[in-house]
Amino acid sequence: MSSPETSHARGASRLDERELLERLRAGDEAAFRQVLTEFGPAMLRVAGAFAADSQVAAEIVQETWIAVLHGLEAFEERSSLRTWVFTILGNCARRRAKTEARSTPISSLNTSGGDEREPNGFFDANHSRWASCWTTINTRWDALPEDSLTTREAENSIIESLRSLPANQSAVITLRDLEGFSSDQVCSLLGVSPGNQRVLLHRARLAIRQALEEALD
């Protein structure tokens, strides 16, 4: 998957971006609306991973834009505009999480995010012949009819599963798999270690895979 820095589809080149920044700094409302249209929905989705409800997520996004505007003049362009904006979003969300009930206290971002039960589907480690082997064969999903994963039921199961993830897992998988940020960027945005980020991502992907499997059955 391409990163936000390299994805052409996700925005203008760095040269275009410089022009965009000049327009933003000059107070060009059309340019601002363009950036808001491009980044806004993804920002709301990422904020939603931290927030208790959509109202709080919206407030985090609004607070982020106010911080972006006040930091625009000082922005040194060491990263793309998108990465900078999402870094501010991560800071706002983490600050907000300290004071909200659902929330992702910063300390909990550095845990695996709950649900560390043993998975089903394996023979016991002491089994005489099949120790720690799968009890059934997993089939490849790419052998299924093309639209199997895109049914409304499958989509709904993903949405529900994302909502039910612990907030730290939800934040990591949203940034990595839905929004295409790199692992380094996610560690920086969330203030988690690379190892912890991988654990959170793994648990989140396992949960979403499980939800998809149940929808496919």
Partner: peptide, 14 residues
Amino acid sequence: GFLSQMRATREHLG
């Protein structure tokens, strides 16, 4: 099969 399902999950989310 499981590896392929995990990758399909990731791709699908993207």
